[in-house]
Design a protein around this nucleic acid. Sequence first.
DNA 1: GCTTGTTAAAATGTCAGACATTTAATAGAC
DNA 2: GTCTATTAAATGTCTGACATTTTAACAAGC
Lengths: 239, 239
Amino acid sequence: MTLDALPPHQGGAEQLARLLAQALLTGHWQPGDTFPRELDIGKHFAVSRNQVRNALTSLSAAGLLERTAGRGTLVREMGDWHLLDPLMSEWMTGLVNLDPQLVRAIYAFRFSAEPVVAGLAAQAAEAEDLERLERAFAGMENTAGSVDARDEHAEYDVAFHDATYRASHNLVWRQMGHLLRPSIMALIHGSQHRTDTLDDSLARHRQVLDAIRNRDVSAAETAAREVLRRTAIDLGIVS
Amino acid sequence: MTLDALPPHQGGAEQLARLLAQALLTGHWQPGDTFPRELDIGKHFAVSRNQVRNALTSLSAAGLLERTAGRGTLVREMGDWHLLDPLMSEWMTGLVNLDPQLVRAIYAFRFSAEPVVAGLAAQAAEAEDLERLERAFAGMENTAGSVDARDEHAEYDVAFHDATYRASHNLVWRQMGHLLRPSIMALIHGSQHRTDTLDDSLARHRQVLDAIRNRDVSAAETAAREVLRRTAIDLGIVS
DNA sequence: GCTTGTTAAAATGTCAGACATTTAATAGAC
DNA sequence: GTCTATTAAATGTCTGACATTTTAACAAGC
């Protein structure tokens, strides 16, 4: 695959990295393919070799590429991607045609993990955590109706789940909050946003919040599972 | 804190990155401190500015440092560390004086997550996965007795748990296998390695293996919890 | 013919030095 | 005192040359 199909870019190695990463994430190149050479990339996008190298360094740190002196740059397979790298989440966010296999994998992870996290949150949450959860939930409520606040609503949704992970008061789980963004953002494009489904989603989130506030571990686990069941429907994973 | 307390190094930006990372991980610098300047580091270790920049790029990608043009390099706090970055696991492995708070956090994560993973493995494991688990378990058995095979035993232990994560057949959980290494390696230095505790540990691992083989989800969850209870004792987290 | 060693080409990796940009502190004008 | 230039110090970027690694081609020798 060549570079010609990619859009132009403007300014900064980060931009270039995002551009190339998103091309890789949407299957623009096949695993095992040789990636274009540094000099060709630089010539194509009219940037210095430095910028190219900085971008490629990020991509290989994220497990998307494998570079070896003398041989060149190879595209790695999905199983080697560092899905938990925050940079990855940033690159995946806003991608419309994310690989369905990946969306399903992330969802399946959340479905197995998030009930546990909600349970931990119910045990460990402090006042500060509850405030964060309530703020996020209030934001979701306020933006539920209007069509042109969809992005904002998604941000509050992300904030709610992230607050749940943080409330677990575990450094490792907390890191995982990054992973939520692309999964939730995919909802915007995937679901119908009918009023009744939104109301349903809100009600389920409220139950998570209440369970955590009441320090009811098993209720939090159940409620989290219910939220994700709703999510699965909206994502089109189940009907 | 100065660079003088650090051991010398030989060759490669990776070595330098490991050296500095381990210094940061053991609290050589406090969060908020300003890290030495590029030129000073280069002069101290007699390496080019390039090498220093490559090393610092890794460290800031892992969330250990925050660099801003003009201001300098700041040391970030533990909550910002990317604990799930594979590089981090590599750096943490072999550290004797890892921060106890960190060891506890990783253990708490495993205690909440690994039962779920074992349950998923019981659902999804295929022949290939069972072979991996059995090979690892056999290795643990063979190396259980001798004192000079402790490192090898730990490797098989890591391999067993990693195989469990892989057997879940979920891309996200699989990535998390990296996190196990430092946690398990810490056991080598922390525990007494008496014969009876080793036998006990082996028996519990065997139950995980059997449960997965029998596709018994709840038995796998229980068995994984038992393994981790043993681990907690060996780590000195509980008595 | 098969192996082995040599050479050449192509790719990434490294170096060195100049320059750019950003930030913070400092001195000066009003 | 406050605002504004100026300066210093740090990281970021560019450029061109060179180093190293890998692969492939090719020739020499048995």
